[in-house]
């Protein structure tokens, strides 16, 4: 199977929009053609060849090595294939991902998975604020697919989340699941202040007790079939983030955010 290797030569001064670098777009291109692709960096356009050493054959898999937080929009709108990143990445990782798999060995910046439609995004490190959230003006954040973060996530995880699953292996910041419309978020560690704020629908699954907004009502202890299905669904996910999913034990169910008439649920395992 052919692989293309792009190795970052040096940390760029200003963030670089790497969205043109996806397996599907580079398939069949010569090294020279790839080197000539212009990438936006602030108010300049830099040839990819100036930023990266290019090796291997373009195909189903693209590997970006020596990555750093100045590489923005990696895998944005990617349609198919595998993108393997060694190192950290910047903002908008996997934004609008249509299909395929993105794996990042390090951490990612803000707005990872915004507008993502399908596919899988796996970040081994931690991510910034607004994971799977909507950008300003959009009424819907992530629209589908699976996001796994082994480390921590920042504030506003899944803001306006419309569909799909977000798993956070570490802690999540404030306003987790804010304004969530549907879908599922599971946090293995702790969450910050006011989880579920302005939530409409959907499920936020928490591994331990958390202080919830006063506008959530306690609907008692339940054994939910959903959780068994959810655990089975995650059985194939190779991450600690997926391993905590409760397997049959009871959860406490809170419903809100009643402030805006929402009927979302926060499930807290005992």
């Amino acid at each position: 199977m052919s692989r293309l290797l792009l190795t970052l030569k040096a940390v760029p001064a200003i963030g670089v929009d790497c969205s043109p670098l996806t397996p599907a777009r580079l398939a069949g291109m010569s090294s020279a053609a790839i080197a000539a692709i212009e990438l936006q960096s602030g108010n300049r356009r830099l040839p990819a060849g100036e930023l990266f050493d290019i090796a291997g054959e373009p195909g189903d898999t693209l590997v970006i090595r020596n990555a750093c937080s100045k590489l923005d929009r990696i895998g944005a709108c990617m349609n198919g294939g595998t993108l393997d990143v060694e190192g950290d990445v910047g903002a908008f990782l996997g934004a609008g991902l249509v299909s395929g798999t993105i794996r990042v060995s390090g951490g990612a910046g803000a707005f990872a998975a915004t507008g993502m439609l399908a596919g899988t995004l796996h970040v081994c490190g931690s991510v910034g604020d607004f994971l799977g959230a909507a950008i300003a003006g959009d009424k819907q954040g992530m629209l589908g697919g699976r996001v796994i973060v082994d480390g921590d996530a920042g504030d506003r995880v899944g803001d306006h989340l419309r569909r799909g699953i977000i798993l956070v292996g570490g802690n999540a910041g404030d306003y987790c699941a804010s304004r969530m419309l549907a879908g599922t978020i599971a946090v293995r560690g702790k969450v910050g202040a006011l989880p579920g704020y302005a939530m409409k629908r959907g499920t936020l699954l928490l591994a331990g007790a958390a202080e919830l907004p006063a506008t959530f009502n306690d609907c008692g202890s339940h054994e939910l079939m959903f959780l068994r299905l959810f655990a089975r669904h995650l059985a194939s996910v190779d991450s600690a983030a997926a391993s905590f999913a409760p397997r049959g034990e009871r959860v406490r169910r809170f419903v809100g955010d009643r402030a805006n008439g929402g009927l979302g649920e926060i499930l807290v395992t005992a």
Partner: peptide, 19 residues
């Protein structure tokens, strides 16, 4: 404050709260 206004919304719209 956001939470306080949320509670006021429930009270104005007569949505019961346990808090």
């Amino acid at each position: 404050l956001g939470e306080v206004f949320g509670v006021l919304r429930c009270l104005v719209a007569n949505r019961p709260l346990q808090a």
